[in-house]
Amino acid sequence: MSSEQDIYEEHVLDHYEDPYHRGDLEKATHSHEADNPLCGDVVHIDLRIDGDEKIQEAWFSGDGCVISQASASMLMETIEGKSLEDIRNFTAEEMLALFGPKLTPNRQKCCLLSWRVLQSAIHAPVDDLPPDNEDGPDVHFGGPSLSEET
């Protein structure tokens, strides 16, 4: 009956159930956390960035829907070994492509939560003051907010 792609593809569910580097990183040099208050999704990212501005290790923790958590896992798997330059150049569109299945504007927010947290985390050294913009770069995606209904 379906003419529409199932967004819960096998590899999405695999990442949800068996995530890559889910947990805390003790020796994190950079760290950030943010949420989507309207759906309650939370993602926390710990990074270990070396002197050459390369991401040596990336870990995430969080709570939320399949999309938000599976996409965070995919992102952690992808960014280790990448330079900060690479991360800065890694666009939201590329994040959506990394996730795979096409998402409606409402669910793009879920997928982009970890991307948003990562973009802030590289500017948030541990034991330092939080960045001015707590919620990360001021970029907006998707349509009307999920759950704002009557």
Binding site: S2, E4, D6, Y8, C65, V66
Partner: peptide, 12 residues
């Protein structure tokens, strides 16, 4: 199961 995943799958 997150509420949004339930709604998404029901829509499907």
């Amino acid at each position: 199961v997150h509420a949004h995943d339930i709604a998404q799958e029901l829509d499907h």
